[in-house]
């Protein structure tokens, strides 16, 4: 069964770091998986692409944590039965990229992901999306990662854009940070100015700041507990 994709209409993405050269980016309409890729779905990929099994994978493309919670190469494991429909995590960017290509799709860009993720929930009541996001960041991980569609559905029909896992993006590290969030003199100066002048009720920037810090710390071969992905596709 093919995964349902939903249309994200064209829009403008305002980059988090606003500088003179960093203007709003026009994003064409595109299709996006309605949920993150699940363990069950990723298992199909690994079975069809043996070079992406845990023991065959090239270490350059996935670190030693790759799929480490699975029972074996082609078996998620009985004790993980609750995870069949949970997002696959501990997957590298390269693995996510390969999966999307196998599905004749691609990873969404940061601009696409952020545009898609900015849509408000339509099936739950929240104070604000930012409150919701910060609240997720402020809670420790649950012992068992919940299933897909366990958080909320947004106005585009996308599930769990926030509150379930972090997600890989195609150009996750295109914002080059030295690792010290205060060191990017040009970007950061603007950011601090902006942060000082915004209405304190608007905390959207802080949630975005956390996401950008997160992406900035990543390398393509990292496989991490909370990090999954979903695919996107051009809309013709």
């Amino acid at each position: 069964m093919e995964k349902k994709m939903v249309l994200v209409p064209a829009g403008k993405y305002l980059p988090f770091f606003i500088t003179k050269s960093n203007k709003p980016i026009a994003v064409d309409s595109f299709l996006m998986d309605e949920t993150a890729v699940t363990n069950a779905e990723f298992l199909e990929f690994v079975i069809a692409n043996k070079n992406w099994s845990r023991s065959n994978v090239n270490r350059l493309f996935a670190d030693t944590n790759y799929l480490k919670y699975w029972a074996s190469d082609y078996n998620i494991g009985i004790k993980n039965f609750q995870l069949i429909n949970s997002p696959v995590v501990y997957v590298s960017w390269f693995a996510a990229d390969a999966y999307c290509k196998w599905k004749r799709k691609r990873l969404p860009t940061v601009a696409e992901w952020e545009l898609a993720g900015s849509a408000l929930p339509k099936n739950i009541k929240i104070q604000s999306l930012t409150e919701y996001i910060l609240s997720w960041y402020n809670k420790p991980n649950l012992p068992v990662l919940p299933n897909i569609k366990s958080t909320y559905c947004n106005e585009y029909g996308l599930f769990d854009m926030h509150g379930l896992v972090w997600e890989w993006t195609f150009n996750f590290n295109s914002y080059i940070s030295s690792g010290d969030s205060r060191d990017t003199a040009n970007d950061e100066k603007n950011l601090f100015c902006a942060a000082g002048s915004i209405n304190v009720n608007d905390r959207k920037d802080y949630a975005a700041f956390l996401r950008f810090s997160y992406r900035g710390s990543l390398k393509g071969n990292y496989c991490i507990a909370n990090l999954g992905f979903r695919c996107a596709k051009n809309f013709k």
């Binding site: 690792g179 969030s181 810090s213 990292y222």
Partner: peptide
């Protein structure tokens, strides 16, 4: 198990970011 990346700036360090520039570490 961490949700977020973290680094460290030690004020005792002479060098970029007090160490922060070279320690932005993802979970795990």
């Amino acid at each position: 198990d961490s949700k977020l990346p973290h680094n460290i700036d030690l004020h005792a360090v002479t060098g970029p970011g007090g160490g922060a520039a070279v320690t932005n570490v993802s979970p795990g």
